[in-house]
């Protein structure tokens, strides 16, 4: 296990706990692996495995109707799967923080990841999501805290993009 990754995952987990997040939905990404383990081991959090990321957007609407705060963990490619469903968050003023690990940016190996990686921030913003971006590990916890707070305090979707510069680009051994 990557010790640095484990350390910042712990900080993200503590941020979710401080904000009393009850439902954590996700399509797994290597960058989120430690955080997913921490959430799964937490008896107060319900970890929901999705078949596609847009399910997590709809889940968040139901969770909020029922009084639960939720967060969506996904890779940037999943943002493309969410586009139409994001409409509900704006129209219904439902808060949803999204922690998004990037593909297709700094040092990307796989050309097929680049188009969606380039479009991620613009697509989110076009659909009414506030977007911040962390490329350095020391920024991650405060930006995550701010993303969760602005989502729940102002009732809207907010995303934190976690750059490959921070995560380490996947290299397929090359």
């Amino acid at each position: 296990m990557d010790t640095a990754g484990s350390d910042w995952s712990q900080q993200l987990y503590e941020t979710l706990k401080r904000q009393s997040i009850k439902q954590v939905s996700m399509v797994p990404d290597a960058g989120h692996a430690n955080l997913i383990r921490l959430c799964e081991a937490d008896g107060e959090m319900k970890l929901v495995r999705l078949t596609t990321e847009e399910e997590g957007v709809a889940l968040a609407v139901g969770a909020w109707l029922g009084g639960d705060k939720s967060v969506l963990l996904m890779q940037s490619s999943g943002v493309g799967n969410c586009v139409n469903m994001l409409s509900m968050l704006s129209v219904c003023q439902v808060p949803l923080p999204m922690l998004i690990t990037m593909r297709g940016d700094w040092a990307e190996f796989n050309p097929w990841q680049v188009p969606m990686g380039r479009a991620t921030q613009a697509v989110l913003e076009e659909m009414g999501t506030l977007v911040s971006r962390a490329d350095h590990v020391e920024d991650l916890a405060p930006l995550a805290e701010g993303t969760l707070r602005i989502a729940f305090n102002t009732l809207r979707p907010a995303a934190l993009l976690i750059g490959q510069r921070l995560l380490g680009a996947k290299t397929f051994g090359k």
């Binding site: 009850k22 319900k46 997590g56 139901g62 969770a63 109707l65 029922g66 009084g67 639960d68 939720s70």
Partner: peptide
């Protein structure tokens, strides 16, 4: 169905 699931888990 997913909205129903989020609601069912919350309540």
């Amino acid at each position: 169905v997913m909205i129903g699931l989020g609601l069912a888990l919350a309540q």
